[in-house]
Every structure is written in C-alpha cells, then in structure tokens.
Simulated assay, not measured.
Amino acid sequence: MKALRHIRAAVDRHHGIIGKKFMGVRDSIRKQRQKGKTPEVFQPDAFTRVAAVLMAFGGDEKEFLRRLDEEPASETAARALARGALRKTPVPVPLFALVVPESYAAVETITARVDGPYLAWAESPDDLLLCRALYAVHPKIAPRLLSRYAYAFLYRFYAAKRRALEASYG
C-alpha cells in the first residue's frame, strides 16, 4: 500500500511537470494565433446599403431610376457640389434592411444597376448615382478617401486629373 502511494505520487509529479509544459506550449500557440487574427467587421450587403440611403434621404425610387438612366455623371457631380457635398455625412446603416413590399423591387433594381466595388462606401443618393462612373474614372481609390469624401468631389478630381494627363500626353 505504501509503495502504491509512492508510485502514484511519482506519477502525479511527472504528469504535473508534463502538464505545465503542455500548458505553456498551448498558451503560446493560442497567443500567436490571436496576434495574427484581426476581428472581422460586419459589412451590410449592397441591398441593405441602398435601402438605408434611400430611406435616410427619403428619395422616390422611380425618380432615382430615372436619374440613373438619363442624368450624366458630370451633371450629378455638379449638382452635388453645388449643394456643398464635399465631405460625407455618415448614414446609419442597419445590419439588415426592412423595406415595404412595394419598394423591394425598386431597391433590388437599383442595387443591381449601381453595384460595384465603391458601393460599400456610398452615403448619399448622389454617391449611389456616381458609383460606377467613379470606378470607371479611377478604379483604385483608397478606402480612406472613399469613406471621407463625397463621390461627386472625387469624380470631379479624378476626371480633371485624367483630362490633364490626356492633354499633356496627347
């Protein structure tokens, strides 16, 4: 009996040492993995962004579709800049959009028509109208600029820059 207790104590000491070593390795692996991870920020989808912008500004979907079809990008930019749209005013975007059934089809159509890489930073109806035109003028704008400045300002800036380059290089 005494020998058995002695053996158990030796085994417990041995497992205790191994357990501490294992815990140290496990903790160091966990810390390394956590260093490499950045928390993912949830981004609402395109439909939710379009619905939130239209609801925040109280726009008529049919009028918006008409402007999308008929109004040139330069005119949209000029109108937005005349209203003083230089910096963006943040629009609260919900996690998920709840729209009335009458507006659902129109929001779906608008989303399909304006969808592009810059839609994630659109904060006004003018931004929605200029999403594709801005991408066509300059496809590699930094996200910090897209989140800070109105698309009308960026469109005018990059369009003028492009015209200046074309004029100087023929």
Rank of each mutant, 00 (worst) to 15 (best):
D115N: 11
L65S: 04
R83H: 07
T109C: 13
T89N: 11
G59C: 08
R49Q: 07
V114F: 07
A52N: 03
A82V: 09
V41D: 10
V100G: 14
S103I: 10
A112C: 12
I110V: 15
A85C: 07
R87F: 15
D69M: 10
A78W: 06
T109N: 08
P94V: 10
L65F: 04
F96S: 13
A105Y: 13
D69T: 14
D115S: 14
V107W: 01
S74Q: 10
G58W: 06
A56P: 00
A85R: 02
L119V: 05
E40Y: 12
V107Y: 05
R83P: 02
A46M: 04
A120W: 05
A46K: 03
T111F: 03
G58H: 06
G116W: 03
R83S: 09
E71P: 00
F96Y: 13
R67D: 05
E75N: 10
V53P: 00
P101K: 14
L54F: 06
E40C: 08
R83F: 07
R49D: 02
R79A: 13
P94E: 12
P72L: 11
R87N: 08
L95M: 14
L86A: 13
Y118K: 04
R87H: 11
P117M: 05
T76A: 11
Y104Q: 15
A46R: 06
A120Q: 09
V53C: 00
A85I: 02
E102Y: 11
E63L: 08
L98S: 15
Y118E: 08
A78K: 12
V41P: 06
Q43P: 04
L81E: 10
T109K: 14
P117V: 09
T48G: 03
V107T: 09
M55W: 02
V91E: 02
P72N: 11
G84C: 05
P90M: 13
R79W: 05
T109A: 13
R83Y: 08
D60W: 02
G84V: 05
S103D: 15
E61L: 07
E102G: 10
E61D: 03
R113L: 14
E70T: 10
P44N: 03
A46W: 04
A106E: 13
P117N: 11
D60Y: 01
A73H: 00
Q43H: 13
P44H: 03
A106P: 03
E40M: 12
S103V: 13
T76K: 01
T111P: 01
F42I: 11
E108K: 11
A73G: 01
A97S: 09
A106N: 12
V41T: 15
L65A: 06
I110D: 00
G84E: 04
A97L: 04
R66H: 11
L68V: 03
R83E: 13
E61W: 01
D115W: 10
G116R: 07
D69L: 13
E108Q: 14
L68S: 00
